[in-house]
Simulated scan of single mutants.
Amino acid sequence: MLPGFIERLAWITDNLNTTDIKGALVIQRLVMCKLKDNGEPGQMIVREAFRGTTTDELRYNDNYFTYNSTLNATAEVVKFHLDISMWRHENFYYPHCIKTLKGYLKKRTNQVNRKVKPIVRLLQKANPDSRGSRVMCLATGFYPRHINLTLFRDGQPVSDDEITGGDLLPNDDGTYQIRKILEISTKEQREKHKYTCTATHLNLDNKLDVSLELDHGTPFKPVLSSVLTVLALVIVTVAAVIIWRKKHAASSKDEYSSASTEEIVDTTS
């Protein structure tokens, strides 16, 4: 692969303005191949990037090539480099990638073929920065990685423009998680909405729905009321104990004084 990178570097520096670049020039190459469900070789994708920007993309599938490039080069130059790339892919890159992928799948059969259902949660939390709140739709602990997670408001899907997150992230145990977050403004807090988090996954027989219906004007009223009730009970209990102790102490003192007086009287007689 080294000669290929040297050739690519020469071509890129000839076609891009590199006079303002100081230090090392970096070319990145990403190679991906797939296996079909029946185990047969699938598509292969190769992307190359220079200075963090993709310059070329080549796709190879069923002996058919497609190629896109952002480099400003003549058709003859493109054809020359493309012919070389096609030969390398057919005779080296593609067979080697498929062989490596099959070997990995053979060693990791139990891990790759495992099936784990997602755990879906719908949470609401106050947002002190905006004085509003935040609704989060979370699915975690699932495998394989493909999942559809949708947040609904009053039965209608929330638009992607309103949602943050949505990236698929790995867990420590090899499963995956994904979360979608919706910011609730102070204006919306005065309205009642029903939110539903819906997930569809390979290991779910049916779609999984989790609903949340709260009054955003007082999102923590039930919790606050419970806390105040418990606090009031504690205060009443403590006050009752203090009063009982004072009465008990006074009663004991009176009994002690009476007994002492009777003892003195008996002694005199």
Rank of each mutant, 00 (worst) to 15 (best):
A10L: 15
V223D: 07
N127I: 00
R245K: 11
L224N: 07
L16G: 04
L71D: 03
F152A: 00
T261H: 02
D161R: 15
P219R: 09
S185D: 01
L168D: 03
V77Q: 12
N127R: 00
V241H: 02
L204K: 03
V31W: 01
V158R: 08
S85Q: 14
K79N: 12
P222I: 07
V26H: 05
L149N: 00
A126M: 08
I147A: 07
A24F: 07
N171E: 12
V241P: 04
G23M: 02
Q124V: 09
I184Y: 00
S85Y: 11
K36W: 05
K106P: 02
K192D: 06
T261G: 03
L71G: 00
T218I: 03
V135H: 07
S258K: 10
G4T: 00
Y64A: 11
K106W: 10
T66A: 06
F50E: 01
I27Y: 06
N15T: 15
V223T: 08
V238E: 04
F5E: 08
L105D: 03
D14P: 02
T196R: 03
A259F: 11
R145F: 09
I84E: 10
R108I: 03
I27A: 04
S258D: 06
T100E: 14
V120S: 02
T109V: 09
A232C: 07
W87S: 10
D62R: 13
L122M: 02
T196E: 06
Q124F: 13
A239I: 09
D205R: 15
G103F: 02
I27G: 05
Y67I: 09
L182S: 04
C33H: 04
L101E: 07
F5K: 05
A73V: 15
D37L: 02
C33A: 10
I181D: 15
D154E: 01
S69L: 11
T268S: 11
L25A: 06
D266G: 07
T267L: 11
M136T: 15
I98S: 05
E162G: 00
V31T: 11
T70I: 13
V135P: 04
S133N: 08
